[in-house]
Design a binder for these strands. Structure first.
Lengths: 108, 108
DNA sequence: CACTTAATTAAGTGTCAACTTAATTAATAT
DNA sequence: ATATTAATTAAGTTGACACTTAATTAAGTG
């Protein structure tokens, strides 16, 4: 499940879709209008997001409204946070402090 | 850069590699010994991680020690955190509280 | 220099995932 | 029943990418 979620947010367009539906439910075609790929392609992305537990569908007549699934997001965030547990969190804070000092001019 | 980082952590083996080098520097072959794929395959994964700014190499004789790159991690985490900004963070907290109540028995 | 060790780059293969168009399902209206 | 609208599933193509083995680079060592 969590693997599916990570896999799902890999695809840039799927991240865009998540942003689109994060505040309001949207139909498949409304989502598709934001992209220059075909409606079936969007439908396929939505299916991936749904199987990853990140969105849910609400049917209303011939339309299907897609919205965010909160539990899915909670799981994903918990995983991501646990990925950088203990030592990594310390590393992160150290790096942030370092950056605060040197104020971002160190690109490899 | 951040796209590369996200792309990089997509691959499960690369996440495993990150876990391996998160606390201590390891050579390419030491890392490879944890997997059942060839050394060149590992080398290629390390290259991806390095180009994503998530690991750094330290050369010592014929060996190359790979370790975590803190700034890269900081960037990645900042992006991930900003991805779930404002409303999403609120959603996350709501979902966590909900889960705390129903105590995790809701798999899709 | 020749040899060993550590690791990479090169070249090629197979799989998978993101797309396409065409066909199909499903709900509603005429 | 037929048509319309919304969306999906089906089928097939393409490109990327995670591997493989073979060849190459690079740094010591006898």
């Amino acid at each position: 499940m969590i693997d599916k979620a990570i896999q799902a947010i890999t695809e840039p367009r799927r991240r865009d879709i998540l942003h689109l539906v994060r505040d309001e439910e949207l139909t498949s075609s409304a989502i598709a209008s934001h992209f220059d790929i075909s409606a079936p392609a969007i439908s396929q992305h939505l299916k991936v997001l749904e199987e990853a537990g990140l969105v849910v569908v609400r049917r209303a007549g011939t339309k299907r409204f897609y919205g965010i699934r909160r539990e899915g997001f909670a799981e994903l965030m918990q995983y991501i946070e646990s990925f950088w547990d203990d030592s990594l969190l310390r590393l992160k804070e150290a790096a942030e402090e370092e950056e605060r000092r040197r104020h971002g001019n160190n690109e490899q």
